[in-house]
């Protein structure tokens, strides 16, 4: 970490460095200075415990989960990165936490037990990327129609989108029922 000692993120980096030998020691995290805020990489199996440590450790105390998102890094392996932004009210720090998951097993632990605000944001990531969050109380789509079969922010998804087949099937069924009602009435 080559950060000038007067950089705004220097105190956070120092605190993270100290925590690497303490509260964060079991998780094998990797800290980088980042461009806008420090970046902490953690393996998906340690994410949940690591997040709890980040929130509960008094020297860090990241009380708020600001944002959850993901990126599709195709053709890199592993394919997806799930990214979390944290904010510490006590210190005024921002921290980015990232974890990588593969295409074959795109799942991480849900953070809803730690940060209840993660609920809808994790649903959005599930909707857009198909990444599942183990232990989420209600993991269903939030932006695309129910029963949609694709995850639109994956790189292979076409730009103009794919029509939701399920809606059209339902409409065809309704039109069919309507048609037979009208024919039945004519007899």
């Amino acid at each position: 970490m080559q950060t000038a000692p007067d950089s705004p993120s220097a105190p956070l980096l120092a605190a993270l460095e100290a925590a690497e030998g303490g509260a964060l020691a079991p998780f094998g995290v990797c800290v980088a200075a980042g461009i806008d805020m420090p970046l902490l990489e953690v393996a998906p199996q340690h994410l949940f415990a690591c997040m709890r440590a980040l929130r509960d450790d008094a020297a860090l105390s990241f009380e708020q989960l600001t944002y959850v998102t993901a990126t599709d890094e195709t053709p890199k392996e592993p394919r997806f990165r799930v990214v979390y932004h944290l904010y510490s009210f006590r210190h005024g720090w921002r921290l980015r936490v990232a974890t990588s998951v593969t295409e074959e097993a795109p799942n991480v632990a849900s953070l809803v037990p730690i940060y209840p605000g993660a609920n809808w944001m994790e649903r959005e990531v599930f909707d857009m990327f198909g990444i599942t969050f183990g232990g989420h109380p209600e993991l269903r789509r939030i932006l695309m129609p129910e029963g949609y079969m694709y995850h639109p922010l994956r790189k292979e998804f076409p730009l103009e989108g794919i029509a939701p087949d399920r809606l059209y099937r339902e409409w065809e069924k309704e039109a069919h029922a309507e048609g037979s009602r009208e024919n039945g009435g004519a007899h």
Binding site: P158, E160, G161, I162, A163, D165, Y168, W171, E172, E182
Partner: peptide, 17 residues
């Protein structure tokens, strides 16, 4: 009587420009 215009068909798959 009935619908005066045919309803659009299911595009079935990607909606190209």
């Amino acid at each position: 009587t009935g619908r005066q215009r045919p309803m659009p068909a299911n595009p079935r798959g990607p909606i190209l420009a």
